[in-house]
């Protein structure tokens, strides 16, 4: 796991009151807000080491603390600059928090931070995934036309299991990430690319009124 502390952080001082700064966006002493003055990663924003394994308790605590600092309500009577900044920083914080708390989004972000490949650079998926997805699609279609609720049940279970095992695969590869992602990074991107297909299959099933009723009677 690559650690990337922010050494400049402790040496930075508030331009307003000269107090030492404990984070990148707000002064704990005079409550001024700042534009992040260099590209700060989501990990740095919450003062967490860069890596896949994160302490969720620390993440939530850091998020809540910063979110309170920059909450737009606090600056409702402030200058236009402060109001604009509070809105922008809040959005940035939310984006960072939502990204890091979700294992798939965190893996995607970490891979990109470490040099990729990004989703645009590698559009591949593992081996026969597309044929498999097509086959499941056809089965869903068939189950819908027959109104076959037991098939829905089985399909939902099978897709969920495939999705879960893909997430486990993503987690396993992330644990192996160290420095330049290389071939591991490529395999990881392929698994990340396959997630959207599983999500679509599940929402297709869930979007059908029949599937909803069958899911609710599931034991």
């Amino acid at each position: 796991m690559r650690m990337s502390p922010a050494p400049e952080n402790s040496a930075r001082r508030c331009p307003q009151c000269d107090a030492q700064l404990n984070n990148w966006i707000a002064c704990d002493s005079c409550e001024s807000l700042f534009d992040v003055d260099r590209p700060v990663t989501h990990f740095e924003l919450f003062d967490l080491p860069q890596g896949f394994g994160i302490d969720h308790e620390l993440l939530s605590r850091a998020y809540r603390k910063l979110a309170r600092r920059v909450h737009p309500d606090r600056f409702a009577d402030g200058s236009e600059r402060d109001r604009e900044l509070a809105t922008r920083l809040s959005a940035r914080l939310n984006e960072a928090f939502q990204t890091l708390r979700d294992p798939v989004r965190r893996a995607d972000y970490l891979l990109t931070q470490l040099g990729g490949p990004t989703a645009a650079e590698c559009r591949e998926v593992p081996g026969s995934l597309l044929a498999e997805v097509m086959e499941i699609r056809e089965k869903i279609e068939e189950a819908k036309s027959k109104g076959d609720s037991s098939s829905f049940e089985a399909l939902h279970e099978a897709i969920t299991a495939r999705r879960d095992s893909t997430i486990h695969g993503i987690e396993a590869l992330c644990a192996k990430l160290d420095g330049a992602p290389g071939e591991t990074g490529r395999e990881l991107r392929k698994l990340l690319n396959s997630m959207k297909y599983f999500d679509n299959l599940l929402s297709d099933l869930a979007g059908d009124p029949l599937s909803k009723s069958t899911v609710s009677v599931a034991p």
Partner: peptide, 13 residues
């Protein structure tokens, strides 16, 4: 030919 778009999850045969 079976192809897909990972960004939207569409599949085409």
């Amino acid at each position: 030919g079976i192809v897909g778009a990972p960004e939207c999850g569409d599949v085409m045969k």
